[in-house]
């Protein structure tokens, strides 16, 4: 009986971290897909393919702000293997990655503040609020995301 308990404990100890890592990868992927959706709506409005409304602008900006606050917490050591596009530079260059996170957070917070709870009043205000956030997508993906 003791042997079985021991075996079960050791197996759990070895596999639970793997499950936890899987959760971490899934969560951060979903946060990023949410960013993608925000960018898509922002882009459609900036291209004037979709009519701008302050509600839609607010949805985009508050969503980007929220994910920017959480995203950086989902990159523990060891989560770079397997089905992920996270690049090894995240862990070999943590200061650089942190700097990109901060850029995302500060631009998203600043954008989210524009227009208060109602959001930016018009497309021009929205453009000024959202473009710096969208620019932070590029620079982080430049160094910390595996292409294709």
């Amino acid at each position: 009986m003791q042997k079985i308990l021991m075996l079960a404990t050791v197996t759990a100890a070895l596999t639970l971290p793997a499950f936890a890592l899987e959760d971490v990868v899934t969560t951060r992927k979903n946060l990023m897909y949410s960013n993608n959706a925000s960018a898509a709506l922002a882009g459609a409005m900036l291209k004037q393919e979709v009519a701008y409304s302050p509600e839609a602008g607010k949805a985009v900006l508050s969503s980007l702000n929220a994910t920017s606050m959480a995203f950086g917490d989902y990159f523990p050591e060891g989560s770079g293997a397997g089905d992920t596009k996270a690049r090894d530079t995240i862990w070999s260059d943590p200061e650089g990655f942190q700097a990109e996170l901060v850029k995302f957070q500060t631009s998203a917070a600043a954008g989210n503040a524009v227009g208060g709870r109602e959001g930016p009043a018009d497309l021009a205000a929205f453009q000024a609020a959202v473009l710096p956030v969208l620019d932070s997508c590029k620079t982080c993906h430049e160094g910390y995301h595996v292409p294709e």
């Binding site: 993608n36 960018a39 898509a40 882009g43 969208l134 590029k138 993906h141 430049e142 595996v146 292409p147």
Partner: peptide, 19 residues
């Protein structure tokens, strides 16, 4: 011009500098 694909994926890696 912007670095965004039709599905609003962002440009990344070495292509950022090119874009």
């Amino acid at each position: 011009e912007t670095g965004f694909t039709p599905s609003f994926d962002t440009v990344g890696g070495s292509m950022v500098s090119v874009q």
